[in-house]
């Protein structure tokens, strides 16, 4: 119960940070997805079920709070599927080792790519925007930036590991 409340508090804090502070980190219109990093951390720590539900709830809140700039339900879909997929990397008792190693960066990179690809597949329906351009100029840079930011939790978790 205590852990659940901690995750809820962290989720709200990260959502606010994502909406308020992340635009300050924008590089050529590309921003990192810190909410996705949190969903991936949950997937590694708690497994598929928790990550799927967290991904759906956080994505939905993000869609609602982002207002006009998002399609309601799209982030929820992309984040819940990504949470589920990344949940395959869950291994009982080895979460801290995964989170504190470079393996975590690879998981975040792959998860962010999957997330962005899924997002664009639906998002670009009925538009003249090229899917390849969207992947090359937005999805891949966005995934790389998210991966770069995930170095911060990686260092944090590497310090939590028992020596």
């Amino acid at each position: 119960m205590k852990r659940f409340l901690l995750y809820c508090a962290l989720s709200i804090a990260l959502l606010l940070v994502h909406l308020m502070m992340v635009p300050f980190l924008a590089l050529a219109n590309v921003v990192p997805d810190i909410v996705l990093i949190f969903v991936i951390v949950l997937a590694v720590m708690e497994g598929r079920m928790a990550a799927t539900i967290a991904g759906f709830c956080l994505g939905l809140l993000l869609d609602l709070l982002a207002g006009e700039s998002s399609v309601l339900g799209l982030s929820a879909l992309a984040k819940s599927v990504t949470g589920f997929a990344v949940g395959y990397s869950f291994s009982e008792g080895r979460a801290l080792q995964t989170l504190g190693s470079y393996r975590f960066l690879v998981i975040v990179g792959a998860g962010a790519l999957l997330h962005n690809a899924l997002y664009f597949t639906i998002y670009l329906q009925g538009t003249s925007v090229s899917f390849v351009d969207a992947i090359v100029f937005h999805a891949v840079p966005g995934a790389l930036y998210t991966m770069l930011i995930s170095v911060i939790p990686m260092f944090f978790f590497s310090r939590q590991q028992p020596q």
Partner: peptide, 8 residues
């Protein structure tokens, strides 16, 4: 808001 193709 920088949400991919919907900048507001």
């Amino acid at each position: 808001n920088f949400q991919f193709f919907r900048n507001t």
